[in-house]
């Protein structure tokens, strides 16, 4: 009503950063999110590399140390935990507890809220990947060649964004906050197993690999492993895999546009 109610609109980028800051703060204050996102991937890496790390496996026709294999694949699990798992649980909980509904009442576009949220997941993804690389380097001597680093960075950012979009799409199918954690794990755990995250490719039957190839988890893992693979000589940019991951991200976005709900579903 009053003229000053329409004071200078804040630039959209500033609002996204504003949202991002508080999302990151809330994440950091949540011990459960911190454990599942930051600690669990490190625990997986340490367990798998300690037990099987000194063995070797064949991948793409050449021999690789299993510790290298695991660092290159658990980083994908880290990205998926930080974006997909973390967001599925957070979105469902916030929707069911009415937090999303109230945010919607504020004069702010949905894109600001969604981009701010996704940006926090991308940053957390980068953090967990850096943490895993450092642990892999110090504990198991797994090195990351500098010439493949840009490709890895692209894979992390693109993978994280795509899995965020999938979470925004799939969260609408989870009916209650209690169901979020089990449903999400039921989606990702089997995919981790058949996509070569926990078990080297060589030990997985061909038909299961074919199934895994339909989904984005294996493609993200392959794209990220390329950067760690000593046989990679170029920049290690795995375009086809990243394209599949991006395709799934777009599909998630389409479902989100169609079904995303700001109000509790259980009422």
């Amino acid at each position: 009503m009053s003229a000053t109610a329409h004071a200078a609109p804040r630039p959209l980028g500033g609002l996204v950063l504003h949202q991002f800051r508080y999302e990151l703060l809330a994440f950091w204050r949540n011990p459960q999110a911190r454990f599942f996102t930051l600690a669990l991937p490190v625990i997986f890496l340490v367990l798998l590399s300690s037990v099987f790390g000194n063995d070797t496996t064949r991948i793409g026709g050449h021999v690789v140390k299993q510790s290298t294999y695991y660092v290159g694949h658990i980083v994908a699990l880290g990205v998926i935990s930080a974006s997909f798992v973390n967001l599925m649980i957070a979105i469902t909980t916030q929707r069911e507890s009415g937090i999303l509904k109230r945010r919607r009442a504020a004069p702010i576009s949905a894109w600001v809220l969604i981009t701010g949220r996704a940006l926090s997941s991308v940053v957390i993804s980068v953090a967990i990947v850096v943490l895993l690389i450092v642990v892999g380097r110090l504990a198991y001597g797994v090195s990351l060649p500098g010439h493949t680093l840009p490709a890895l960075a692209v894979a992390v950012v693109l993978g994280s964004a795509a899995f965020c979009a999938l979470a925004f799409g799939l969260a609408s199918f989870v009916a209650s906050a209690d169901a979020a954690q089990p449903v999400t794990q039921a989606v990702v755990l089997p995919l981790y197993f058949i996509s070569g995250i926990f078990i080297p490719d060589k030990n997985i039957p061909g038909w299961l690999i074919d199934v895994a190839d339909v989904f984005p988890v294996r493609h993200l893992a392959k794209a990220m492993f390329t950067s760690f693979d000593p046989a990679t000589h170029g920049v290690g940019f795995s375009g086809r895999d990243l394209l599949v991951v991006a395709g799934w991200g777009v599909a998630g976005l389409v479902v989100a546009l169609w079904r995303f709900s700001w109000v509790p579903r259980s009422k």
Binding site: M1, Y22, L25, R102
Partner: peptide, 15 residues
């Protein structure tokens, strides 16, 4: 220009 107090909504617990 509109403020809303919803019937059932929690506040951001971590903030």
């Amino acid at each position: 220009r509109v403020g809303v107090v919803l019937q059932e909504s929690q506040v951001e617990p971590e903030l």
